[in-house]
């Protein structure tokens, strides 16, 4: 069996930046067979997202193209692609890793900033709306109460969740 014995280049390429991330490790195993693309329910409906294409762009180091567009935010995390990938590329995890890089670069869609803000403020991603209250009443469910955010924020603080949010806010 052959083993890798390749010296790393001085400059870190984008694909390396991805592979040293949690969730990004398996990128280089991709050989573009397209099983992920044909497994993907989103790709069928929206040509902006194609998991095979995103992996190819990442492998070729097209950092800006990967991070700036809408594509990586369209994944529904259904994991079909990951289940069927013959190279065990963790495609859904890779999309998470790419999203993390994008957020660090200040590239998250506004709605994610809204989600983050809501989580910090109310402890919920989706605010309690009149519509939701009404629906719950109809179904005979008790009304939602505000949740305490103090403990949650300790966790968010410790995990660094609040930082990209601040970055977003300062922009």
């Amino acid at each position: 069996m052959l083993h890798h014995n390749v010296k790393k280049a001085e400059a870190i390429s984008f694909s390396e930046e991805v592979t040293c991330r949690h969730g990004g490790e398996t990128l280089t195993a991709c050989y573009q067979c397209g099983t992920c693309a044909s497994s993907c329910p989103v790709a069928r409906l929206d040509s902006r997202f194609n998991p095979r294409e995103i992996l190819k762009l990442a492998l070729l180091g097209e950092k800006d193209e990967v991070l700036s567009g809408d594509a990586i935010w369209l994944c529904t995390s259904c994991f079909n692609c990951q289940e069927r990938c013959p190279q065990n590329v963790e495609i859904a995890e890779l999309i998470f890793a790419l999203r993390n890089i994008a957020i660090e670069a200040g590239n998250s869609p506004n709605i994610y900033a809204d989600f983050g803000g809501a989580l910090i403020a109310d402890g919920r991603i989706v605010a309690i709306s009149k519509f939701v209250e009404k629906k719950r009443e109809e179904f005979g469910l008790p009304p939602l109460k505000p949740v305490g955010v103090e403990d949650l924020n300790k966790i968010l603080e410790a995990t660094g969740f609040t930082k990209p949010e601040q970055k977003e806010a300062s922009k």
Binding site: G34, A43, R52
Partner: peptide, 11 residues
Amino acid sequence: VDVEDALLKRF
């Protein structure tokens, strides 16, 4: 047979 033609990016 459900396949993507990767060259055309077509399902």
